[in-house]
Simulated scan of single mutants.
Amino acid sequence: MAPSAFKFGTDVWDPTHRFETSWLVSPWVLFFCRALISLYAFTTLVFILIWRCINADEHCVASQNQFTYFTSLTYWGIGFYFLFAAVHTFTYARTGVPLLDRFPRPLQTLHSAFYTTIIVYPFVVTIVYWARLYDGKWWPEVFEGWSNVSQHLLNSAFALFEIIIPRTDTPPLVHMLWLIVVLALYLSLAYVVEATRGFYPYDFLDPVEQGAWVAAYVFGIAIGCIILFGFAWSCIKLRKYLTETKFGKHGKFAGSLRAGTKPISEDYAGEGAVPGEAV
């Protein structure tokens, strides 16, 4: 894994447009769904910032603090991923050639890695929140209930959408390394926040209160992230087997490719050519 960590790959990039097509819906419907999810994510994030700036005791300081939470950062990631994915899907549906295919290979590879974070991190956020942070009491205010459900439950629903509906291939195993690197960078950010703003984004990172349990939480979340990568990888593998091998649904395509037929380019390039050496 380590020798290929910084390789961008030299094979044909996504020859059958797996990132922009679905086995179930047309490219236009996939574009609409992705655009709608992106719109909902950004609307949620902006509304939370405005509401806290107006109503919280600390006003706009509370809004600024939102950017210290992994939950909020991953939700911004969801918004931007679905925005970019919608643009790529739109250009594919419109012209038959996605904008992503015109990007340099490093950006294509980063999009593949971005996709992997979207199908893994939301599950990490959801499990940690409901298993460790949620106190078991429903929120008396509608806003608190809606914001927490949106960021800690719908986030995983969006991840499942990207696992199940598009024709995306299984992510490269090297992405496990980068998932852990990003988590480590966030851990560093959490301690920078404590040093500069005087609080920990999450109480289980406080060594004074938690002691040795901090290490247990950190390593537990890292191991859980790897397990969830395996879960997402297996689900995609199962989806491909059921839809393509078992039921022959090779995808709905734009342009000259007829919906439901197997693209010729995949026979030519081979399955391994769908981004295999990403990141």
Results as ranks from 00 to 15, higher is better:
100 L>C: 07
113 A>G: 14
267 D>N: 11
175 H>F: 01
134 Y>A: 13
31 F>E: 01
209 E>I: 06
94 R>W: 09
242 L>H: 10
31 F>Q: 06
214 V>I: 09
5 A>P: 09
185 L>P: 01
168 T>G: 09
41 A>E: 09
219 F>R: 00
130 W>Y: 13
253 F>N: 03
191 Y>N: 03
191 Y>F: 05
45 L>M: 13
136 G>S: 03
135 D>I: 13
204 F>N: 07
194 E>D: 15
95 T>G: 10
53 C>H: 09
153 L>I: 13
156 S>D: 04
249 K>H: 11
143 F>T: 05
98 P>I: 02
159 A>D: 06
165 I>R: 02
143 F>P: 01
4 S>E: 12
241 Y>L: 02
128 V>L: 10
206 D>H: 11
17 H>K: 13
195 A>E: 06
254 A>V: 03
78 I>V: 08
77 G>W: 08
21 T>A: 05
168 T>F: 07
60 C>L: 06
96 G>H: 13
242 L>G: 01
110 L>S: 09
223 I>T: 08
46 V>R: 05
168 T>S: 12
84 F>L: 14
191 Y>M: 00
203 D>L: 04
252 K>S: 03
115 Y>T: 05
172 P>A: 12
94 R>G: 04
261 T>F: 10
135 D>W: 10
55 N>A: 11
164 I>Q: 02
152 H>E: 04
250 H>M: 05
228 L>N: 07
27 P>D: 08
60 C>Q: 09
186 Y>M: 06
167 R>D: 10
44 T>C: 12
134 Y>W: 15
55 N>Y: 15
128 V>A: 10
204 F>C: 02
93 A>P: 10
28 W>G: 01
266 E>G: 13
133 L>M: 14
68 T>I: 00
188 S>R: 05
135 D>E: 14
118 I>A: 07
181 V>P: 01
54 I>A: 13
81 Y>I: 01
128 V>G: 03
261 T>E: 15
10 T>D: 15
222 A>N: 07
228 L>C: 10
61 V>N: 12
116 T>L: 05
78 I>N: 09
72 S>C: 11
40 Y>K: 03
228 L>R: 04
145 G>N: 11
244 E>P: 06
3 P>K: 13
34 R>Q: 08
236 I>H: 06
224 G>P: 06
82 F>S: 02
122 P>Q: 06
9 G>C: 08
57 D>W: 09
32 F>G: 04
36 L>I: 04
241 Y>P: 02
98 P>R: 04
224 G>C: 08
209 E>D: 14
261 T>K: 11
141 E>W: 12
99 L>F: 14
78 I>P: 03
150 S>W: 07
93 A>D: 12
33 C>L: 15
32 F>V: 11
279 V>Q: 05
73 L>H: 11
74 T>R: 04
8 F>E: 09
134 Y>G: 01
171 P>R: 02
162 E>F: 02
177 L>W: 11
9 G>H: 12
